[in-house]
Simulated scan of single mutants.
Amino acid sequence: MPLVAIALVGCLGACEYESKDASRLPSPAPATEACAVPPGPDGGGTATIPPLPDGGEIDAGAYLVLAPGYPVPFEITVPAGWSSEDGDGLRKDDPDHPDDMAVFVGWWSAGYVPTDACAWEGALVRIDPSAKAFVDAVTAQASTASTPPVEVKVGNYSGFEFDHAIEGNMDVTACDRGKFCIHSELSNECTRWYSTREEHEAYRVVDLYGQRAVSWVVQFHEAINPELTNEARTVFDSIVYRSGQ
């Protein structure tokens, strides 16, 4: 099993992968508590935490994020060397591969999921706002492989976590517009896609008072330094949603 795949799964551990492509990703072990810092007091404490900048390299520290459509904000803690991507995610590049994206922690609205990640044009299906609806749609998606979702707790909130990747030897050039569409904010265009078969992610989908909050950590290439992959997982696991509406 590649070290980078092991690192991506992080604290959730791994067991035998039971999906359409048993060689791609490890499966998270059952868990009752995600690796997140404890939530702040109900409805308070956010004033001392600065908002995440909209773009550019940011200082190490904790930031507050209110993602569109989320009923509560979340905190995320970032070490040095990370950059904000339009306030919708964080990225860090591998100095050994300066011209390629390395790792990314993202979050944004995911209202549409294609039934087939390869043949996705004109086939983006709107899903209801529950966490389970997103998990069911993505893990059932053709042309991709997922680990069995496990239930997790993030502070006071429940959710699911699973890994996701391209199935087997799928050829991206044969797909609509040369990309694998995973989900989208729009009904007529894909906003989250894979451009190569090497991309894979860990998803955490949390139920916030009946509205889902979707976050993910991406590894773009298998040759990425495992220390950077571990660091990305730590940033991902630092997300904690505030209590109270």
Score class of each variant (00 low, 15 high):
residue 3 L to Q: 10
residue 4 V to K: 00
residue 5 A to C: 02
residue 7 A to T: 01
residue 10 G to N: 03
residue 13 G to C: 02
residue 16 E to K: 10
residue 16 E to G: 07
residue 22 A to R: 14
residue 25 L to F: 04
residue 26 P to T: 01
residue 31 A to D: 09
residue 32 T to N: 13
residue 34 A to W: 15
residue 34 A to N: 14
residue 39 P to C: 12
residue 42 D to N: 13
residue 44 G to H: 09
residue 45 G to S: 05
residue 45 G to A: 05
residue 46 T to A: 14
residue 49 I to D: 01
residue 51 P to N: 07
residue 51 P to V: 02
residue 52 L to P: 00
residue 52 L to D: 00
residue 55 G to P: 03
residue 59 D to N: 02
residue 59 D to S: 07
residue 66 L to D: 09
residue 68 P to E: 13
residue 71 P to W: 06
residue 73 P to A: 12
residue 74 F to S: 05
residue 74 F to R: 08
residue 77 T to C: 00
residue 79 P to T: 02
residue 89 G to P: 01
residue 91 R to V: 09
residue 100 D to Y: 11
residue 100 D to P: 00
residue 103 V to N: 02
residue 105 V to P: 00
residue 105 V to Y: 02
residue 106 G to L: 07
residue 106 G to Q: 10
residue 107 W to S: 14
residue 108 W to N: 12
residue 116 D to K: 05
residue 116 D to R: 05
residue 120 W to G: 01
residue 122 G to E: 04
residue 124 L to H: 03
residue 124 L to P: 02
residue 125 V to F: 06
residue 126 R to Y: 04
residue 128 D to T: 12
residue 129 P to M: 06
residue 134 F to D: 02
residue 135 V to H: 05
residue 144 T to F: 11
residue 151 E to C: 03
residue 151 E to G: 12
residue 156 N to M: 13
residue 157 Y to Q: 08
residue 157 Y to I: 06
residue 162 F to L: 02
residue 166 I to V: 15
residue 168 G to M: 15
residue 169 N to L: 15
residue 170 M to E: 15
residue 170 M to G: 15
residue 175 C to I: 10
residue 178 G to I: 10
residue 178 G to M: 10
residue 178 G to Y: 10
residue 179 K to E: 13
residue 182 I to E: 11
residue 182 I to V: 15
residue 183 H to I: 03
residue 184 S to Q: 07
residue 185 E to L: 10
residue 186 L to P: 05
residue 187 S to G: 09
residue 189 E to R: 10
residue 190 C to P: 02
residue 191 T to E: 06
residue 193 W to H: 10
residue 195 S to Q: 11
residue 195 S to K: 12
residue 198 E to K: 09
residue 203 Y to D: 06
residue 204 R to C: 06
residue 208 L to H: 06
residue 212 R to G: 08
residue 218 V to N: 07
residue 218 V to M: 13
residue 220 F to W: 11
residue 220 F to P: 00
residue 223 A to Y: 13
residue 225 N to S: 10
residue 226 P to V: 07
residue 228 L to S: 05
residue 232 A to T: 08
residue 239 I to T: 12
residue 244 G to P: 06
residue 245 Q to P: 00
